[in-house]
Design a binder for these strands. Structure first.
Lengths: 196, 196
DNA sequence: GCCTCAACCGACCGACCGTGCTATTTTGTC
DNA sequence: GACAAAATAGCACGGTCGGTCGGTTGAGGC
């Protein structure tokens, strides 16, 4: 990897960390450069625009999410174990046990839900992929006989994500220590409904 | 109402509308003033600081929420009808059928979940009140015999809010036309679990 | 030893930010 | 209609923003 490419990676990584604190739009090139002991112009030379940097940062977050949440689940046996693992690592990601401070896909959802552009486009695609991933894992559980044959997969994914979202608010904003217990309890009920 | 107070109200109202599009932090005094045909300093004179304005805006949103969601529900008979009405108006609020473009309590959650200060404090309190309101409505349903006597009220509120949160993402960001159907389906399942 | 080229820097631009200060206009009261 | 008070405007300040530009550095190939 060339020096330039390595620096680029460091920039994206640092920007991702900062974005977890101040939002993606809130990461200024000056602050980002300073935190890397780089000049602002030296940093900017790696990207055509701030927006291009933002896209790279989001793509990096997507890669991290797949690596930290999806891949471990795919290593589990098909069916309910895979679905359960997906949820476990998802909770961990949302809580920030993963790399970034918290789930910034949710933050980006509100930052970009009415701000068109390539960042939003990539975000939308990634979230649709995420719902699909959940639905596909649930489908394996149906096929294995762990879940009901007539289970509504899209609805399952919907409920799944909702549990994670409210978990984020209750845990991080409201600082309720029972948040994780609530999430696991809600997920247990969801599983119960999905079973034959 | 004096002229000054009236202007103040208009400022807060306009700021609330703008905040729905660009976030609370994203509302700049210059743009806000221009959209009201006011000078920036003339506008600023009504508030001690931008932060004070933000607090007022949030308080206004809270008042709107109570007016648009909580009050109509309280007019319904105690028990399940009240809970159902609460959810109906909540969905309407989130979808933006209410005054503001979308539920900006959720947006604020991510804007302020790690930014201490009076805005965050007020937000936390308002959200805790909201969970309590849901739980209290559910309690009336228990008392009326509509819900199970051993229903976990806090868990009910948790599940309730989660449905609304994922609804926001699926409807607004992913623009999925089945979002509302999903939300209502999830809520129906929640009700089913709550009944004796 | 020299040349090249990617990598990086410092200075700078115009625009906008929140916030004071001092007029000036508008409002409400007698 | 005069006058005090309230409301608003004008203006300037120090900062930060994304972005540009002309240069400097340094490592690798010849």
């Amino acid at each position: 990897m060339s020096k330039g490419e390595q620096t680029r990676q460091e920039i994206v990584e640092r920007a991702l960390a900062l974005a977890g604190e101040v939002g993606l739009e809130g990461v200024s090139l000056g602050v980002l450069a300073a935190s890397l002991n780089l000049s602002k112009s030296g940093l900017f030379a790696h990207f055509k625009s701030k927006e291009a940097l933002q896209v790279d940062v989001l793509q990096r977050a997507i890669d991290n999410f797949i690596q930290d949440v999806v891949v471990p689940a795919l290593k589990q046996p098909r069916g309910e174990p895979r679905v359960v693992t997906l949820f476990d690592y998802y909770l961990g990601w949302v809580h920030g046990n993963g790399r970034s401070g918290s789930c910034f896909f949710m933050a980006l959802t509100h930052e970009y839900d009415d701000r068109p552009g390539p960042v939003r486009d990539l975000l939308v695609q990634s979230q649709r992929d995420w719902y699909d991933t959940i639905a596909r894992a649930a489908r394996t559980a149906v096929e294995e006989g762990h879940f009901r044959a007539d289970l509504d997969l899209e609805q399952f994914a919907y409920d799944f994500v909702g549990i994670g979202m409210v978990f984020q608010q209750v845990a991080k904003l409201l600082e309720n220590p029972r948040a994780e217990m609530r999430a696991r309890s809600a997920f247990a009920a969801l599983l119960e409904r999905a079973r034959p």
